[in-house]
Simulated assay, not measured.
Amino acid sequence: MACLPGALPALALRRWLGLGVFMLLCLSLGYALEKKVVKSKVGEKVFLPCCHEIPSSDSLQNYRVYWQKNTTEVVLAYAEGKKMPQQERYENRTGMDVRNLTLWISPVEILDNGPYQCVVQHRKHSQNSVVVCDETVTLFVTADFSKPNVTVEKRFKTCESTVMVVSCSSHGGFPKPKISGALNNVSVVWNTSSVSKSSLGLYNVTGQLWLNVTKDVSFTCSVEYNGFLKSTSLLLKNKNDCVVPTVPPSYNVITASSIIIIIFLLAITLAAKYLPRHVCSHCCKPQDSVEEDVKESMKPPVSSKVTRETSSV
């Protein structure tokens, strides 16, 4: 029991040492894996590291170096310091550093995508060649897609909404992309989408969406590939410029209105024809009668004396 206090720190120390070694191994493995993958874009110049470096005290004449792709295509090779035949498509666009044996390719093409193997053999004096290095590095090639092109076609319109067909397309990229759409930052599912591949290995992608737009909304099309993202946004407007048409009167209303107008015109015509005659026959006199009545009223009255004389005679 007396040994327990001293044993516990030793056990803890061992655990810490084991954990430290494990972390170093993980970091070393991660670094090695990171070195084995090289990313490049179409048209760039890329460098692929080899697993061996020739010391300054030695020379390329004592080595055989093979850079091959998919273990079948000879990309670049040297034997005793002399360049060996290679695949035709790698001619004039590949090279190698004579010390660290790094392979460079320029310009990079889509077909260059894939694993490359560096094999190094060393021969000392008259001894047989010994493999001192055999390692694979993967070249991951990408090509930028064009900025998504968004077009809108209006199929049907009412005063409340507009039916639109929204199309999005992008081309000339690698690797195979993922196309997505969003309305006001909310993801939508394409009605139709397609991805095609050209003879050069480049991808073209399209998507089509049917929408019933009742108000202005923002549409975004995005193309994602190998961690890269390209997007285009467009405001879809539902312009409410409808004019409510005037409802024509019914046949019965037109008929009734016509009858009323005709009766009204007949009434005016009859009134104009008969009403003036009726008034003149009762209220008006000829001009001569009026003048006689005036003269008669202006005569002096006959005196009573004259009247008595007349009576006596």
Rank of each mutant, 00 (worst) to 15 (best):
A12L: 11
R15P: 01
V21S: 09
V21G: 04
L24F: 09
L25V: 12
C26D: 07
G30A: 14
G30D: 12
A32G: 09
S40I: 01
K41V: 04
V42D: 01
I54K: 00
S56E: 12
S59R: 10
Q61K: 14
Q68P: 02
A79M: 09
E80I: 06
D97V: 05
V98P: 04
W104K: 07
E109A: 13
C118E: 01
V119K: 04
V119E: 05
S126F: 09
K147N: 06
V152T: 12
C159K: 15
T162I: 02
T162Y: 00
S167Y: 06
S167I: 05
C168E: 00
S169R: 09
K178T: 14
L183I: 08
N185M: 06
N185Q: 14
N185I: 05
L200F: 09
L202T: 11
N204P: 01
K215T: 11
V217E: 11
V217F: 02
F219C: 01
E224M: 04
N226T: 02
T232W: 01
P245N: 06
P245V: 07
P248C: 03
P248T: 00
P248V: 02
Y251H: 11
Y251A: 13
N252P: 08
I254E: 05
T255A: 15
S257Y: 06
S257M: 06
S258W: 09
I260Q: 11
I261L: 15
I262M: 12
F264R: 12
A271C: 14
A271N: 13
K273E: 08
C280G: 08
Q287I: 09
S297W: 07
M298R: 15
T307M: 13
E309D: 09
E309K: 12
